[in-house]
Simulated scan of single mutants.
Amino acid sequence: MNEKKLAKILKEGVKNNKIKTGYKEVSQYIKGTKLIVLSKTLTPEKEEKIKKSAEESAISVISYPGNAVLLGRLCSLSYGASVVSLKNVSDDDVKELMSS
């Protein structure tokens, strides 16, 4: 996975206010999402639920190897984020992240 590219996309999402963080919020606002990033901190049950919802809605899912705190830092947030969803990601960016 290209972590620099992912960080750039996440920071852009935060700047443009097009990002949702946390399991409840991501689950609630899954419609219109293009990309979901899961940290390894997420419980297997929650991860399975999000992956199932994403699959039904044809949303790309990336498993981030770091924990929630590292994913939060990658987004330039002052708190941890076990799961992050983005709405304003270009299809090219998603393809690039999925292939790397």
Rank of each mutant, 00 (worst) to 15 (best):
K4D: 14
K31C: 06
G80F: 05
E48V: 03
V61I: 13
K11E: 11
E96T: 13
I30D: 05
L35N: 02
I36H: 06
I19T: 12
K46R: 14
Q28L: 11
I50G: 01
V37K: 04
S39G: 02
N2I: 10
R73Q: 14
E25F: 07
L71T: 01
L74T: 03
K52L: 09
N17F: 05
E3T: 10
A7K: 15
S39Y: 02
E55W: 00
D93P: 08
V89G: 02
N17Q: 13
M1A: 11
K51W: 13
G22V: 12
L6R: 01
S53I: 10
A68S: 14
I59F: 06
K49A: 12
L42R: 04
S78W: 03
S85K: 00
N16K: 14
A7S: 13
K20A: 10
I30A: 09
Y64L: 07
L70R: 08
K24H: 11
K8N: 08
E3S: 11
A7R: 15
I30Y: 09
L74P: 08
K11G: 03
M1F: 09
C75P: 06
V69S: 07
E25D: 12
K15E: 13
E45L: 14
N2R: 12
L97E: 10
S60L: 04
E48K: 15
D93V: 06
L71K: 01
L74M: 10
K20N: 12
K34I: 02
I9Y: 04
